[in-house]
Amino acid sequence: MTQQEKMLSWAILLPVSAVLIWSLNIVVTRYVTDFISPVSISFYRWFFAFLILTPFILPRVIRERALIVPHLKQLAVLSAFGLVLYQGLAYTAAHYTTATNMGIINAFIPIFTIFVSMLILRDIPNRYAIIGSLLSFAGLIYVMGQGNPWGLLHAGGQWGDLLMIIAVFFYAFYGVFLKKWQLQIPLMLSLYVQILFALLYHLPFVAWLGLDAINMANAGSVIYASIFPSLIAPLVWMMAIQRLGPNRTSIFMNLMPVFTALIAFVWLKEAWTIYHSIGGAIILFGIVLAQKKTLAPVLLKAK
Rank of each mutant, 00 (worst) to 15 (best):
M1G: 14
Q3W: 07
Q4S: 10
E5I: 10
A11D: 08
L13Y: 06
L14M: 08
I41H: 03
I52F: 01
P55V: 06
P55K: 00
F56V: 13
R60I: 10
V61F: 00
P70M: 04
Y91E: 01
A94Y: 05
M102D: 01
N106G: 15
A107F: 10
S117D: 10
L121N: 08
L121D: 06
D123P: 00
R127C: 09
R127T: 14
G132N: 06
Y142G: 01
L153T: 08
G160K: 10
Y174E: 13
K180C: 06
Q182P: 01
Q184K: 15
Q184T: 14
M188Q: 12
I195D: 04
L196V: 14
F197T: 02
A198W: 01
A207H: 07
L211N: 02
Y224K: 00
F228D: 01
S230P: 04
L235R: 02
W237N: 15
W237Y: 12
M238H: 14
G245A: 06
N247C: 08
I251H: 13
L262V: 15
I274C: 01
H276I: 09
S277E: 11
G279W: 03
G279K: 03
I282V: 15
I282W: 01
I287P: 03
L289G: 07
L289S: 07
A290K: 03
K292E: 06
T294D: 05
P297I: 10
